[in-house]
């Protein structure tokens, strides 16, 4: 499953977001040598990390982030439009449209790299389509390094189309791509990558117990199975006591009630 992190629920993801920014620094600044980047508090940030941004995070059972992507409406500024407009052909429709979102900072680390990470990376790509569909977006755009073009064209599951000619930049050669967002494209993505529908987890932070997001994900999985709920709930109570052992009883009971609602599929 892929966690959808927005401005509204970022409170649940403080640790995971910190880890994501750190991995962005490792991947883009250290490994790929992108020089014009802002590094602060050990992480990489730019002007497109703001309240409109949606982050897709693959969070493993130990809390590590293995794969991530950033999405943002293109109407309020985009890397392609603001920094690399020459990558978009003159006859392409404008990307400054309510129906277009930009994707960026797509990376994998650790187990999500290589052949073994194929499925995790595919989950992130499917999540991008699901998030876009849910927001009425018709097209995603983005900039990739030229060496990523072959796997994007064959094997990514996305309906990808180059939207201009590639051009060199300081650390490589960039290619702008457009990705179709439609029900048919989502179904094709699920089928071609062997994925189940509804890959996204959208957590409402007001309704969640104060557990790490990967534990809430596990709780939701258990709820979907529908058995051993009392044992699971007991485990959750113990875990909450570990994390919040100085809380008044009333607040603790409120958290248990939240966990119970998740187990009940609410």
């Amino acid at each position: 499953m892929i966690h959808v992190v927005t401005w509204a629920n970022r409170g649940l993801y403080a640790a995971a977001l910190r880890e994501m920014h750190r991995l962005r620094r490792v991947h883009f600044v250290e490994e790929r040598g992108w020089s014009a980047m802002t590094v602060r508090d050990g992480g990489e940030f730019d002007a497109y990390d703001d309240e409109k941004t949606v982050y897709l995070l693959a969070i493993e059972a130990d809390g590590s982030v293995s794969c991530s992507m950033r999405m943002r409406p293109a109407t309020t500024g985009s890397i392609l439009q603001d920094i690399f407009p020459h990558l978009i052909a003159d006859d392409e429709p404008s990307i400054a449209s309510d129906e277009v979102w930009e994707i960026s900072r797509y990376f994998a680390s650790g187990a999500a790299r290589g052949r073994g990470g194929f499925r995790r990376r595919a989950e992130i790509r499917l999540a991008s389509l699901e998030v876009a569909m849910a927001r009425g977006v018709k097209r995603l755009v983005g900039m990739i390094d030229i060496e990523m073009l072959p796997p994007m064209l064959n094997g990514s599951g996305w309906r990808v189309r180059p939207i201009g000619l590639p051009a060199p930049y300081d650390e490589g050669v960039a290619q702008a791509i457009g990705i179709e967002v439609s029900k048919a494209a989502v179904m094709e993505m699920e089928e071609s990558q062997g994925l189940e529908p509804a890959i996204c987890i959208n957590l409402d932070q007001d309704k969640m117990p104060p557990l790490p997001p990967q534990e809430i994900e596990a709780l939701q999985r258990t709820a979907a199975l529908g058995d051993n709920q009392h044992e699971v709930l007991l485990g959750v109570v113990k875990r909450l006591l570990e994390l919040q052992n100085d809380l008044p009883e009333s607040e603790l009971l409120d958290m248990v009630a939240k966990a119970q609602r998740i187990l009940g599929g609410v």
Partner: peptide, 8 residues
């Protein structure tokens, strides 16, 4: 750059 994209 262009030949790389077209070649791929």
């Amino acid at each position: 750059a262009v030949l790389q994209a077209c070649g791929a």
